[in-house]
Structure formats: structure tokens, C-alpha cells
Amino acid sequence: MSDPALFEIRDLTIESVREGSRRRIVEGMSLSVRHGEIVGLVGESGSGKSISMMASVGLAAASLDITAGEIAFAGRRFAASDREGLRSNLSHGVSLLFQNAKGALSPFLTAGAQVDRVLAGRMPKAARRREAAELFRVCGLNHADLADKYPHQISGGQAQRVAMACALATEPRLLIADEPTTALDVTTERELLRFLARLCRERDLAIVLIAHNLSLVAEYCSGLTILHAGQIVERGPLASVFAEPLHPYTRGLIAAVPDVDEPHELVPLAGSVWGGRNDIERCRFSHRCAFARPDCEAAVPPLLERAGHEVRCVLYREDAA
């Protein structure tokens, strides 16, 4: 693709220090998003999806040590450890959606006031009301009904749409949506994702969709990155990854998702994300992998180009038998 990336994370590495012991919770993470594209970031809970995206906008917890990496957005480059610089991207084209929308809205302000205070720095008071009403409309909400309600008085789906209106008030070109539908029921989930996909088309909005559910991503994303224990295990165009999943973890994830059209036996993934040794450089999936060999724990396997996408697994090495 000749189209340059709108947003790029390069070699992001994050360590947590707890009681004197260091643990690398994100290792050499990279991600690239083009204008108006939806990319999926998938992995189990604790795989480092949210942390790496929060770090990419300077909002990682202060206790985390960002040891390497570079973030570029719309031509501006920052070291990943430059939280101040990265935070300047927020409200200048990058916005976020959280899993728990009711918790993300201030419990002390009405829905209307939440949107209004985001608009406050951007336009005169007179224009704000009209703009807020327009944002509510875009997000499928009735301003007259909801503007005076507090977050605890509205439903989860409505709260997520109010959060959406807040996010859109910053005129974003990139939206990082961290499992925005997890707290919602299935129908509301579908509605919201369809709505996000439409925004993406109509407003040229790029979206990073963080999810632990592969089937959701399959429907809306064009690119896919799969993270396990802070390592990218496989990434590439969605069609290619789904047509030929290579990494044992990716296969495990797909096997764990029920499919209505082609019913198959559901196989739960064994083990936990952070089991195994943390004191050596290794494939972080080796402790759960049915195909593990001694060389899995000899070094971090490189990302290899195979079948139209990239995979990090020793099974696909040139010299492999």
C-alpha cells in the first residue's frame, strides 16, 4: 500500500516493576493503521492489548516503565516514554472508547454537560448546544430526552453512545475502542459495531478495535494483530489470517469460537497467559503449546512472512524439517 500510515506503534516494550522484580508485559509490539481502516487487536485478558494501546496515547499507569518504542500519529513522532507528548495527541485527532461506558462517564455530570465540556475549548458557547445536539443525533440519541440525564439513569448502550458523542466532539481521525461492547447485550453489541463501521466509512475515521472475541473482529476489521503475553504471535490482512491461521495460538483461538455455519468441536485453550518462565527470552506461548520444542525457549522467534501474513513461530522456519 502506498497510503502512509495514520498511526503507527513501533517496537513498544513495557515493563512492570513489582516488589523489585521486573516483568516485560509488552515486548516489541508494533501496529499500523491507515486512514479510515478498522484493525483488530485480539488476545486473551492480560495479553497486553489495553496496556499497549493506553501507553500509545500516554495514559499508561505511572507505575509502568516504558522502556522502548516510538509512536507516530499524523506525521508527529514521539518516544513511547514521552507521556506528555503522546497525550497531546488526545483531543488533536486521537480518541478512546472504554469497555465500561457507564464508568467512563463522569457520574457527576449530565450526558449533555459531558459533551458540552469537551466542546468548551473548541467553539463559543452559543454554538455548543447545537453541536451537542448534532453529535447526539449522529450517535443515534435524542438530545432532548437524554441531555439532562445522569449516567446512572441511562442504559449501558446509551452510555456507550454518549461516550461516543464525547469522543466525536474531539473530531478524531483515530478511535481506539477498548472492547467497547463487552458490557452490552448481543443485539446492542451488533448495533454499536455497525454504527462504528458506518462512522469509519462516512467520516474517514480509523479504528483500532480491541477484542477478545475473534468472531466480532472477523466481521468488521480489515487487518488483524494477535497478541499473547505481550508478544505479537500473528498478524496480517484478516482474510489471509482466517484462511490460513498458522500459529498454534491463533488456531486455538479460532477453535474456541463457535461457528453456526460450520459447527465444530469447541476446544478451550489450556493454561494461562503468564505461565511458564519469565526469566528467559522465549516464545511466550511455549508453555501452553502442543508443538513446543527445545528451540522455542532458546530465543524469541522472529516474525516470519508466510502465507501472505506474518507469524512468530519456529515451526515455520526455513530450516525446519
Binding site: S91, L96, N100, L105, S106, V118, A167
Partner: peptide
């Protein structure tokens, strides 16, 4: 550490508004 404080920052609201307005009130 509440989500509404982090979301406030994510929306580019000033630190004074987030800390004094929301976190302190919380």
C-alpha cells in the same frame, strides 16, 4: 484510577478539570 478520570484525560480535558472536578468530587 477511576475510568471516568482516565476517560476525561482521553478526551483531552485539562488536568485541573479532571483532578479537581471529577477525581476530587469522587
Amino acid at each position: 484510577g477511576e475510568d471516568y478520570v482516565i476517560f476525561g484525560r482521553a478526551l483531552g480535558l485539562g488536568e485541573r478539570q479532571v483532578v479537581l472536578g471529577d477525581a476530587f468530587r469522587g
